[in-house]
């Protein structure tokens, strides 16, 4: 009986989780059909779609890891760019292939994240502030060490294999599995959640908050380095940026994160984030296919984000109000009777 209930609940949750991306896809397909345009291009369409999903998934993993711990990190974009420049140059100089370049990205990203974490721990300033300083420094470093040129691997075919469909699926799968295991089955994950839901209590019970934060920063560095890897492999180049131009890269991961937040009621948070990324990519693909302009697309996704935030912030209030209304009706009916 219990097993049956469990299976039933699992299926129900799985259905509800998938409902958001599936419903979004259905809506987009209908709109494309009405407009007489294909949802995505026959050749290369799925690859471009998968690329968008992977980019936003890794950004959202990193952003979410910080956000749910009460930290906002402006330096994620700069870390991705600097990791791209350093790892790309190492890969070219040492004759690496795509896989070894990927491993280099992980190492460099983790190291950059560790530096960011050390500064946060040393200074004990609000992470938004330290991340601004780190973003400025990483951008400047990326520009300085490449003399403003960034890195270009377009003419090194051995390094361009990372964004085929299979490699991207493998990368996304590996990222999801690692996040799932780390946050659900390791001490780090348990401690992370404890701090997330009660910092003072967690610290008072002896939890080492600083170690946890440091590991968090390293993980985030490695995750955004994947964004850098994907961008470099897909486009062949990574340009240096200055004047906090990279800080906006973080914002684009917020919509998938918020959609994931809604879906996370029915499944694991990491799976929910991936589903949120898929949903966002479906919206983006669909809007591009029907020829929606950039400003219109920006408006649509922004209003969507506001709607989701409104729902998240007020969903319980609305439910409570509806329940109260129902009780009032029942009370009125019984009085009338």
């Amino acid at each position: 009986m219990n097993d049956a209930n469990r299976v039933k609940r699992l299926l129900k949750n799985a259905g509800l989780s998938l409902a958001v991306p599936v419903a979004t896809l259905a809506l987009m397909l209908i709109i494309c059909e009405l407009k007489g345009v294909p949802f995505w291009a026959e050749q290369g369409g799925f690859r471009a779609f998968l690329y968008a999903v992977c980019m936003s998934a890794f950004s959202a993993f990193a952003l979410g890891l910080h956000l749910f711990a009460g930290r906002f990190d402006f330096s994620l974009g700069a870390t991705a760019v600097l990791a791209g420049i350093i790892s790309g140059r190492i890969a070219i100089e040492t004759g690496m292939n795509s896989f070894t370049m990927l491993l280099t990205f992980v190492g460099v990203g983790a190291a950059l994240g560790a530096v960011s974490g050390v500064l946060y721990l040393l200074f004990n300033l609000p992470p938004m502030i330290t991340s601004l300083g780190v973003a400025l420094a990483y951008e400047g470093l990326g520009y300085g060490i490449s003399s403003g040129k960034g890195v270009n691997i377009s003419l090194v075919p051995e390094l361009l294999g990372g964004t085929g469909i299979t490699p991207m699926l493998l990368l996304l799968g590996a990222g999801l599995v690692i996040m799932y295991v780390v946050l659900n089955f390791t001490r780090f994950g348990f401690n992370y959640r404890a701090i997330q839901f009660g910092q003072k209590i967690a610290v008072d019970t002896g939890l080492n908050e600083k170690t946890n934060a440091f590991v968090c920063y390293m993980m985030c560095g490695a995750l955004v380095a994947m964004v850098g890897f994907l961008r470099l492999s897909y486009n062949g180049t990574q340009t240096a940026q200055l004047s906090l131009g990279t800080s906006a890269a973080v914002f684009s991961a917020m919509l998938p994160l918020f959609i994931g937040g809604v879906v996370a009621r029915f499944c694991d948070q990491n799976i929910a984030i991936v589903l949120g990324c898929i949903t966002t990519a479906i919206i983006s693909q669909g809007l591009a296919s029907i020829g929606v302009t950039l400003q219109q697309r920006s408006l649509i996704t922004s209003f969507l984000m506001i709607a989701i935030l409104m729902y998240s912030a007020n969903g319980e209030r609305v439910k409570a109000w509806l329940a109260k209304r129902r009780l009032q009706r029942v009370a009125a009916a019984s009085v009338a009777a």
Binding site: A48, R231, Q238, A249, S252, A288
Partner: peptide, 22 residues
């Protein structure tokens, strides 16, 4: 613009649509 997601976030989709099957 390729590779500048902040300025042109839908470039990949439009590019792929423009070259697909050709």
């Amino acid at each position: 613009l390729a590779g500048y997601e902040a300025i042109d976030p839908t470039f990949n989709e439009r590019f792929t649509a423009a070259v697909s099957g050709k």
